[in-house]
């Protein structure tokens, strides 16, 4: 494009670029700060000596995190719930979306309506709890794996993708050759839908990994707690130590030492808990913009 910029346009450009640079720095700074604080001496952090760059580097925060059995167990649980939840989500969503994408499905509108209602009306917290209690799921890992795993929006997004991005002739040709729906689904649809599957898997995985609320409601066994719940207890328990001092279980000197370590642990823990998501992010990043675009096209 030829550059037609007038003088005001140039001013506009500069202001725009500078503002965007500032926004980007503001967005990234908290993340950068957490990274630095997780390896800096907490004293430096708390006295304002660590603002932009790690100071008095120490790894004792990470050491403590990886020695905490609750954290390790939470990590293991979270991996399990995330893997299972994502698998279930895909295994239910994709076949349903394929069925709804087929023109030869009789009663397609009945099924669509049946699914659609769930987008606008839900029973709410307690009725859901009572239902799962009735079928014996409360206290097991299944609510954490299953609640929210399947949603109509994902079914619609994948259905739209199947219809708009996979040539109908391909399916017709296969059918004329005598291929069953199973075969069409596994041999044609799935291999051609990698972007949308990647996007949905990512979102499902991140959703499961980051969720604490479902686990808080349905689990009470410490051994089953996912990482976010362990994290919540450690990050939100500022008053915990003060109570111990009051009760004479800890003297003030110990408290200061322990507070210092705790502060460090918090930063290290944030990094450790967010790392898996940040690691897969660049791999999937090229897919998700595409996936969201597909979803935004009206069904």
């Amino acid at each position: 494009m030829v550059n037609y910029d007038t003088r005001t346009d140039k001013v506009f450009n500069v202001v725009n670029l500078v503002t965007l640079v500032i926004i980007t720095l503001l967005v990234l700074y908290p993340i950068w700060f957490v990274l630095c604080a997780s390896i800096s001496d907490p004293v430096a952090v708390n006295t304002g000596k660590m603002i932009c760059w790690p100071k008095d580097v120490t790894f004792s925060g990470y050491k403590a995190v990886f020695q905490d059995p609750a954290v390790l167990l939470g990590y293991r649980n979270s991996i399990l719930y995330t893997a299972l939840g994502t698998l279930v989500s895909l295994a239910i969503t994709l076949p349903a979306a394929y069925a709804l994408s087929r023109k030869d499905l009789v009663y397609v509108s009945v099924f669509t309506k049946f699914f659609l209602v769930t987008m606008f009306f839900s029973g709410g917290l307690i009725p859901s709890y009572l239902t799962l209690q009735k079928i014996g799921m409360v206290g097991t890992i299944w609510p954490v794996v299953l609640v929210g795993a399947v949603g109509m929006s994902n079914i619609v997004i994948s259905r739209t993708f199947f219809i708009s991005s996979i040539p109908a002739e391909l399916q017709e040709a296969a059918q004329i050759d005598g291929a069953s729906n199973f075969k069409i689904f596994f041999r044609i649809i799935l291999p051609l839908s990698k972007p949308i599957i990647a996007v949905m898997a990512l979102f499902s995985a991140v959703g499961h990994w980051n969720n604490y609320f479902t686990a808080m409601i349905y689990l009470d066994d410490d051994k089953l707690k996912p990482l976010q719940l362990v994290l919540r207890e450690i990050l939100m328990q500022a008053e915990f130590n003060a109570k111990m001092v009051e009760q004479g279980l800890m003297d003030v000197g110990d408290l200061q030492e322990s507070l210092r370590l705790q502060e460090l642990i918090r930063y290290s823990l944030i990094v450790v808990a967010t790392l898996p998501v940040m690691i897969i992010y660049p791999f999937i990043q090229k897919y998700f913009v595409k996936g969201i675009m597909v979803g935004s096209i009206k069904a």
């Binding site: 991140v206 604490y212 976010q228 990050l235 918090r266």
Partner: peptide, 10 residues
């Protein structure tokens, strides 16, 4: 992609 727990913790 940061979790709610981490966000509030931050």
């Amino acid at each position: 992609f940061v979790s709610t727990v981490v966000l509030v913790g931050m």
